[in-house]
Design a protein around this nucleic acid. Structure first.
Length: 835
RNA sequence: GCGGGUGUGGCGGAAUGGUAGACGCCGGGGACUUAAAAUCCCCUGAGCUUUGCUCGUGCCGGUUCGAGUCCGGCCACCCGCACCA
């Protein structure tokens, strides 16, 4: 009672140690409580924790702590997605070893997370670069290989000739390597692939069962998988050959007025050999930009090959063009073009004066209505021979049936999804556990020789993959025939590491990747929380791995994440000096209505509220704010105000307000009197209502609303006179706030005379009888406009309510003598008088 | 272009078709203090002829006794994908 301020600088660490010593948050796989697996996307150890991590992990933490309080056995683990390019970049730039750099970052970031007091099971921590982890990954990879889900083929890669390395598409900027600036070459290399397309149908269908995923993410995945159904068929060409095209609109076949092939289509290449204009045109197409803006404005261009394609129904010959808008990677790289019903074909036909024929119309009478643009909608087939009069769906089926019975085409499903290329010509990744033998070919490393570990004595001074030029590492004997052989020097895409880590968190036997029975107890993850940037790749790959492992009998779940939540970013206002340079929040201050630079008083322009980024200097450092306000205030801020799926604007005033509330709650706890007597029925009601509301809000992840309810109960308890109910209210508010402000809650729990940890306390019970009010405020409207309010006993019968409302002076004035035509009474809510 | 989302005070945001603006921030006034910090109390959508009235949830219309909420049509901004046949 003497020290009225709560001091996080000494309390935070003390309670963090107490939880540690009590091993509060270690999950027990043998518990018979209902399980709850709460998982946030594990971080890449880039160096320091970002404020976005703080928000992400705070949300998960509140849920995890709440679930513990409501009697669940909670698995809430943390680890490190530790392989990746930044470690190699650091090695090249600073001469440090990727492993050393990574593990140092992990130590730093772990300490940062611990300062926030997260209820994490650190006993299960691992980094994906630990040989124990990636060794198991290698074993799983071999299992998938043996099940036929892994294969090798030649594939084009972006090759940086200076850095001697393969670049991801994002690392190629304007055709040049992002680091070296060298012009990137396309090279054909033997690459490893995972057969994700074998699960395309299932991955698509599975989306339907993910009711607790954001609609947006499901749609993004659906588009990515990109299923389309149509007809693949052959045109006989005037030069005696045939060409395969694919269409999703076989119904419009009578409207086809030309055929178009991609510039890299074999036919285009063949034409180019004998025709230098064609060759020039193809060159020109390749020079075209690939950025979104360029594509949008790109003009449709074509080159008439002079070849004709015989229409399977009319026998007419259609011209074959090479066209810049046709993609080799999709379908067959060739299309039948129907200008009347496809906008791209329409634009092209208009430019080159090709026929535009209507074959779908609103009605048979509108068969010759002019087309001013392509019409893609449904309707009745016209100008289409035997299809006339059919609707689009029937016509599609009819054409496919004819093509199949006559043998010139077949119904086909085409996917946008490609197999997953997982070869990376890099050092800092999971070595692909295979050996190349001249006699035996590709041979998996025997499992008893796993893990294939990375050599430590590597240098990054010379460009290229250190695994390739290491003097000894790759030289091994073939496990099959014993002859001299070489190891695969590619490593696995880092997305593989994050495709099964949640299984390893659930079960960590030494001799296998996971124990199926133990995993079955924890999976699926009940709540997964992370950024929207992983909406497609990570989540799709994890869904694929789970299916693939189920396919080979290692698992019994298909969908790894039952419920997904994507949180918004933390944003901050930006500041610029007169010369346009960015200024950090610490360099500026508000001067009346304006902003000025602290150092010289010069005016500063306050700009948009944007995602925090180092380049714009609008960042805040979690360590600094924790040191200044304590972990609880920071956590509270992360949950307040903005709904969790939306962006959260960071503000100095906001965090100060949170700091004030921490102290306010602390002062309230000091007023707790275990011996207080007497009732306060109204406060008791508010208390119980708050317990129910906060629980509902946390379960819905509506943390901002939960926070508002805690504020309300706090205010009510502050204002109340001492009573037994007030003491209960104070105790309750502390429990409700404990998932959000665990340190203050522990300190307060002691102040209340409790000896255990609030981390082990139960969620307060709710008395349903106290959830309902005995008095209600009734709105009294006249013609829908509020004129008065009445406070009456709950459940007052309609006639009495009506009489009370009509007796109101304000109501009578509003009616002004007009006859009452109708009275609408909503019990316990309102009376509306229509006069 | 396609798909999705969002529009409510000075700001972040609440609101099962039923009292719009909960809660927080900012701001204003007051109390305490020699003073400040801290804390506490009050006010705080706009306007007006201020016991009260009118207007007000991006815009236009509709349904309804009653619309921020439902329906139709627009507008703006944000995000994702993008020449996918």
């Amino acid at each position: 009672m003497t020290d009225i301020r709560f001091d996080p600088s000494q309390a935070d660490g003390r309670w963090q140690r107490a939880w540690d010593e009590a091993r509060c948050f270690e999950a027990d796989s043998n518990s018979d409580k209902p399980k709850s697996y709460v998982l946030e996307m594990f971080p890449y150890p880039s160096g320091r924790i970002h404020i976005g991590h703080v928000r992400n992990y705070t949300m998960g933490d509140v849920l995890a702590r709440y679930k513990r309080m409501t009697g669940h056995e909670v698995l809430h683990p943390m680890g490190w997605d530790a392989f990746g390019m930044p470690a190699e970049n650091a090695a090249m730039e600073k001469g440090v070893h990727p492993a050393g750099w990574t593990y140092e970052n992990i130590a730093t970031m772990k300490a940062q997370l611990q300062r926030l007091g997260f209820a994490l099971d650190w006993s299960r921590e691992f980094a994906t670069c630990d040989p124990e982890y990636y060794g198991h990954e290698q074993a799983l990879f071999i299992d998938l290989y043996e099940a036929g889900l892994v294969y090798r083929r030649k594939s084009a890669v972006n090759w940086d000739p200076v850095d001697q390395t393969v670049l991801a598409n994002e690392q190629v900027i304007d055709g040049r390597g992002w680091r070296s600036g060298a012009v990137v070459e396309k090279r054909q290399l033997d690459q490893w692939f995972l057969k994700i397309t074998a699960f395309a149908e299932d991955l698509l269908a599975g989306l339907g069962s993910l009711d607790d995923w954001p609609e947006k993410v499901r749609l993004m995945q659906e588009n990515w998988i990109g299923k389309s159904q149509g007809l693949q068929f052959r045109f006989d060409l005037s030069n005696g050959e045939t060409i395969e095209v694919y269409t999703t609109r076989p119904d419009t076949i009578f409207g086809a007025s030309f055929v178009a092939v991609a510039p890299d289509h074999p036919i285009a290449q063949q034409v180019a050999m004998g025709n230098c204009d064609a060759a020039k045109f193809i060159e020109q197409c390749k020079r075209g930009g690939t950025t979104a803006a360029e594509l949008e404005t790109a003009e449709k261009l074509g080159f008439d090959t002079g070849i004709g394609a015989r229409h399977p129904f009319t026998g007419e010959y259609l011209p074959v063009y090479i066209a810049n808008f046709v993609l080799m990677e999709y379908g067959t790289g060739a299309i039948m073009a129907v200008p009347g019903h496809d906008q791209r074909d329409f634009d092209f036909a208009t430019k080159y004066g090709l026929p535009i024929v209507r074959v779908v119309a609103a009605s048979a009478e509108a068969a010759d209505a002019p087309l001013t643009e392509a019409e893609a909608g449904d309707g009745v087939l016209v100008n289409s021979g035997f299809l006339d009069g059919m609707n689009v769906a029937d016509a599609k089926r009819a054409v496919i049936d004819r093509a199949q019975s006559e043998g010139w085409g077949e119904g086909k499903t085409v996917w946008r999804l490609r197999d997953w290329g997982i070869s990376r010509q890099r050092y800092w990744g999971t070595p692909i556990p295979f050996i190349h033998c001249e006699a035996c070919g590709v041979v998996p490393v025997p499992k008893d020789q796993l893990p294939v570990t990375l050599p430590e004595d590597v240098d990054f001074k010379t460009p290229g993959n250190p695994l390739v030029r290491h003097p000894t590492w790759k030289h091994v004997d073939c496990p099959k025939c014993g002859a001299a052989a070489t190891r695969e020097t590619d490593t696995l895409d880092t997305f593989v590491n994050s495709s099964w880590y949640f299984l390893r968190f659930a079960s960590q036997p030494a001799d296998q990747p996971f124990d199926a029975a133990e995993v079955a107890k924890w999976m699926p993850v009940d709540q997964y929380i992370g950024g929207i940037e992983h909406a497609i790749l990570h989540l799709l790959y994890a869904r694929f791995w789970t299916r693939a492992l189920a396919h080979i009998g290692k698992l019994d779940v298909k969908e790894p994440f039952a419920s997904l939540f994507t949180q918004g970013m933390v944003t901050h206002e930006t500041y610029r000096a007169g010369d346009g340079s960015w200024l950090s929040p610490g360099e500026v201050r508000k001067n009346g209505e304006d902003w000025i630079r602290i150092s010289d008083g010069q005016p500063v322009t306050a700009g948009r509220v944007e995602k925090m980024s180092k380049s714009k200097k609008n960042v805040v450092d979690p360590d600094e704010i924790i040191a200044r306000y304590g972990a609880d205030a920071v956590r509270w801020f992360m949950l307040s105000d903005s709904p969790p799926e939306r962006d959260l604007p960071w503000s100095e005033a906001g965090i100060e307000g949170c700091g004030r509330f921490v102290q306010r709650l602390w002062r309230l706890v000091q007023q707790y009197d275990a011996n207080a007597t007497g009732e306060d029925k109204a406060l008791a009601r508010k208390t119980h209502q708050a317990v129910a509301a906060v629980a509902d809000h946390i379960e819905a992840l509506a943390f901002n609303k939960a926070v508002a309810k805690i504020y309300e109960l706090t205010s009510a308890a502050e204002k109340a006179a001492p009573s037994a109910d007030r003491s209960r209210a104070i105790r309750t508010v502390l429990l409700l706030a404990s998932p959000m402000m665990p340190h203050l809650a522990e300190e307060g729990w002691r102040a209340l005379g409790e000896s255990g940890l609030v981390a082990n306390a139960g969620w307060p019970e709710v008395d349903p009888a106290l959830l309902v009010e005995d008095e209600v405020t009734i709105a009294v409207q006249v013609k829908g406009k509020l004129r008065d309010t009445l406070t009456v006993a709950k459940g007052l019968p309609q006639p009495e309510l009506e009489a009370l409302a009509l007796a109101s002076e304000k109501v009578q004035r509003a009616i002004d003598g007009a006859p009452v035509r109708k009275v609408i009474v909503v019990p316990d809510r309102l009376v509306n008088i229509v006069a």
